[in-house]
Design a protein around this nucleic acid. Structure first.
Lengths: 233, 233
DNA sequence: AGAGGCCTTTACGCCGGCTTTACGCAACGA
DNA sequence: TCGTTGCGTAAAGCCGGCGTAAAGGCCTCT
């Protein structure tokens, strides 16, 4: 499941550190999280393990040809690729675009335009819907895109706080989420101590989801630590 | 709907005949069928009745602002738009891209590069099947092309704001659209807090569409979050 | 000038979610 | 055995969000 919550991740591939330093504040100002890679092989590794939503790629890399990087990426992912290059030769552009790049921006570039092209590239990903990341556990199904919860085929109505709580558990399914984490994310940093909230709302969730607190099959209590949603298929 | 057989149709929007004459042989050589439009209103008409797979748009049109054309198109179609313009100001590019354009090429341009960018734009919407431009849910029918809303066969008259609101819900049918999204898109960024607008207009929509607020069959309320149009098959 | 449509704004009743309090229970250590 | 601590459940009151009606102002069209 692509847990596409939180900030949008942008993978910046460039071997020049000054370029990365130049981009970082501008991307951060837009609320993006910037991931760096200085070589082609590193780019492929980061694209795979960090799953960025968009890739900014310089063609002049030390270890691989830029077009080869594009082709390698396109073998398994359709993440938008915006090429950022000093090469202005038309054949370079054509090669990069036909290899699967989504856009081609020449250096030097205006930051505002680059950000606009980034937004345009991100739109493509959004529009084409993609697979709905639906979480399943037993007869529970949680669709984080549609904000829909089903239990044994029946739709379950949740209040905002209830849903937020369940969403956090789903996003960390199988792992323990501490009480502090839950309280901070749902009720805000001012209520990280109000564990009573948790007991009340976990109880409401269990009731609506048909889970028995003494023998829970969905939401497990880790005493003194937090709660865990079973991630079994 | 869009029986995408035969050659790929490219809509070229430019008021200068010599540009269109210049493009025609190159597009024909690639096997494209070229449709022409010399004004913004003609562009909107051709986009609707010829259903091109991609649109090449010049921003300097005699009757309408180029960005308005993009916005008007994006109200009902996701056909890729490649802007072709002599304007090189950064703000022009940003405005066009953020209005929904997929790419921005400055004149003069190299034909090879333009064709490559055209191919890149076409790739985006390739996998995306033929989108039905008329939305159905129960006995409600919304035709985003003709800007027409029918309920149980009867035409429904909507005010501009009412229509915008319904259009957004249709474009995200099945998914929850947050109050902020709706307010920003319909009333502008300055009114993202005026949730009262939403309650009034959602109420008007429900009344005109014959939906009961207490037991809604069309427009569902997600308390504290937003609204959702049921996307029943 | 007049009429009508549309948007904005105000007022109000209602319902439900959130918070808070209270209490029972089980586990654990002294 | 008793006290302590943490967990689960029930219930009550408050507050805010939601839906509805309606009035006033602005605009356009006649």
């Amino acid at each position: 499941m692509t847990g596409d919550k939180g900030p949008i991740r942008v993978l910046v591939v460039d071997d020049e550190p000054q370029i990365r330093r130049f981009l970082r504040p501008s991307l951060a100002a837009q609320g993006y999280e910037m991931i760096e890679a200085a070589s082609g092989t590193e780019a492929l590794a980061r694209a795979s393990d960090r799953a960025p939503q968009v890739i900014l790629l310089d063609l002049g890399l030390p270890d691989m040809d830029g077009v080869s990087v594009i082709r390698a990426l396109r073998e398994w992912t359709e993440t938008p690729i915006v090429v950022l290059s000093v090469r202005s030769r038309e054949t370079d552009k054509i090669a990069a675009l036909d290899a699967g790049a989504d856009d081609y921006v020449e250096k030097p570039f205006a930051m505002g335009e680059l950000l606009a092209r980034l937004r345009a590239a991100l739109r493509h990903r959004l529009r084409q819907g993609g697979e709905a990341p639906v979480f399943h556990s037993g007869d529970l199904a949680v669709d984080l895109v549609r904000r829909e919860v089903n239990k044994a085929g029946q739709s379950v109505k949740l209040s905002p706080k209830e849903y937020d709580l369940l969403r956090l558990l789903v996003q960390h399914a199988g792992k323990v989420v501490t009480q502090r984490q839950l309280l901070e994310q749902v009720w805000g940093p001012a209520h990280v101590e109000d564990t009573q909230y948790l007991r009340v709302y976990i109880g409401q969730l269990r009731q609506k989801l048909g889970d028995d607190a003494t023998h829970p099959a969905l939401i497990l209590t880790e005493p003194g630590v937090g709660y865990r949603l079973v991630s079994e298929a």
